[in-house]
Lab assay of single mutants.
Amino acid sequence: TTYKLIANGKTLKGETTTEAVDAETAERVFKEYAKKNGVDGEWTYDDATKTFTVTE
């Protein structure tokens, strides 16, 4: 399944996707990606669109 991340960070803005077996796995991947890019904010997830959003 393809999951999408929308990053609304102070230093990183944009979108990326990952293939994962479930939302929990995708969330781990995206949180690691955000951490590597210095983004720390509020996370939301929309199951209907398989989209995570992080906003600083």
Rank of each mutant, 00 (worst) to 15 (best):
F30L: 04
T55N: 09
K36G: 06
E42G: 05
Y45H: 01
V21K: 13
T49S: 10
D47K: 09
T17A: 07
T49P: 01
L5A: 02
Y33F: 11
L5F: 09
T17K: 08
G9C: 15
K13G: 06
V29W: 15
A34F: 05
E19Q: 14
T53S: 06
F30H: 01
K13E: 07
G14H: 14
E19L: 14
W43E: 00
K35I: 11
T1K: 11
Y3W: 05
T2G: 04
V39H: 05
F30N: 00
E42I: 15
A26E: 00
T1A: 12
Y33S: 02
A23D: 05
G9E: 03
V29Y: 15
V29S: 06
G41C: 03
E56S: 08
G38D: 06
K4V: 10
V54C: 06
T18Y: 12
I6Y: 07
G38I: 04
E27I: 08
R28H: 07
T16L: 15
D40S: 13
K35W: 11
N8H: 12
T1I: 14
G38V: 03
T2K: 12
E19Y: 15
T17Q: 09
V54Y: 03
K31F: 05
A26K: 00
K36S: 11
A48S: 11
K4L: 08
E24D: 10
T11E: 09
G38E: 05
T18F: 12
A26R: 00
Y3T: 01
Y33V: 05
Y3N: 01
E32P: 01
D46E: 06
G14M: 15
G38L: 05
Y45P: 00
A26C: 01
E42M: 13
E32A: 13
K13T: 10
K4G: 02
W43A: 00
A48D: 11
W43I: 03
V54N: 01
E56P: 07
V39M: 12
N37H: 15
A48E: 13
E19N: 13
T51K: 03
F30W: 02
T49A: 06
V29L: 12
R28I: 09
I6F: 07
K50S: 04
E42A: 11
L12A: 06
K10C: 14
T44K: 09
N8K: 13
A48M: 11
A48L: 12
F30S: 00
I6L: 07
T16Y: 15
Y33I: 07
A34E: 01
T11V: 12
E15K: 07
F52E: 00
D46C: 08
I6M: 07
A23L: 10
N37Y: 14
E27K: 10
